[in-house]
């Protein structure tokens, strides 16, 4: 490689890194300036000590876990069945799972409110539990493209048909096959889908705001509109959470001991 090409490579890399990190550094630096003249963690302390932060964040974490559970329950059996028995349906299912990427969340939530309002046949918005459930369903739809793709990719790495038949010949029924054979073998894929879901749910604003649930997204927006330093601290925290999720995906993939044969 010529010196010129190598130099260009470095310049492009440095430009890319700068493009990503300089705003982040600015953000972090500003979030530390809550006390006049010195750097301090005051903004972080204020945020973490805020009961509303604790409440909304815990609410969103619980919602994320529920969403992940829904996602796994819906996506793993579906992707498994499509691979095993209905390979012709794969393009259609893939198309369906991609729809949430092109239909804005606001359209989904207005649809929900229209379909499930208090005067409808299934008045889910009439109760707190019903609305929470509706929110979890909405989140599941939003996370569907990521969850399905992750699980489907995981299924591609194992011989689903033969493993299923082997388990059947050993006396296993469908529930056993799914829980003891298929799920453990696509666990890294399921977990990466789960972490993506987690990241989406934690930052989601539209669904939570319009269904009027006390989630982290609307809190983020409220703080951003009313406080000087705290929103920046909050952004840094949100970034840290997302990155932690990404890091966990990497860790899980690396430490799944029986998967080494595939790599």
């Amino acid at each position: 490689m010529s010196l010129y090409a190598r130099l260009t490579g470095w310049i492009v890399l440095l430009f890319g890194l700068g493009y990503f990190f300089i705003p982040l550094l600015g953000l972090t630096e500003f979030s530390l300036k809550a006390r006049r003249g010195v750097y301090s963690l005051d903004a972080y302390a204020k945020i973490i000590g805020d009961t509303e932060f604790q409440a909304t964040f815990s609410y969103s974490v619980v919602m994320a876990l529920v969403t992940i559970a829904f996602g796994i329950l819906i996506v793993v059996p579906t992707a498994f069945w499509v691979r095993l028995k209905m390979p012709w349906a794969r393009p259609y299912v893939e198309f369906l799972t991609l729809l949430p990427l092109v239909i804005p969340a606001i359209v989904i939530v207005f649809g929900y409110i229209r379909l499930y309002n208090t005067s409808s046949w299934l008045p889910l918005t009439g109760t707190v539990t019903g609305t929470n459930l509706l929110l979890a369903f909405g989140y599941t739809v939003l996370a569907l493209p990521y969850m399905y793709r992750a699980v489907d990719t995981g299924l591609r790495t194992i011989d689903v048909a033969t493993l299923t038949e082997a388990a059947q010949s050993l006396g296993a029924g469908w529930a056993t096959i799914l829980t003891r054979v298929i799920l453990p073998n696509v666990l890294p894929a399921v977990l990466s889908g789960a972490f993506l879901t987690f990241a989406i749910v934690i930052g989601e604003f539209t669904l939570a705001a319009l269904l009027d649930r006390p989630a982290f997204g609307p809190y983020l927006q409220r703080i951003g509109a009313n406080k000087p330093y705290e929103p920046f601290a909050l952004s840094v925290i949100a970034f840290a959470i997302t990155w932690a999720c990404m890091g966990l995906i990497q860790l899980v993939t690396r430490f799944s001991k029986h998967m080494k044969a595939e790599s």
Partner: peptide
């Protein structure tokens, strides 16, 4: 799974996990 028949496959089909 109700037949109690053992089967060995060309591709081994051992459970990797």
């Amino acid at each position: 799974n109700q037949r109690n028949i053992g089967m060995v496959f060309q591709a081994y089909a051992l459970f990797p996990n």
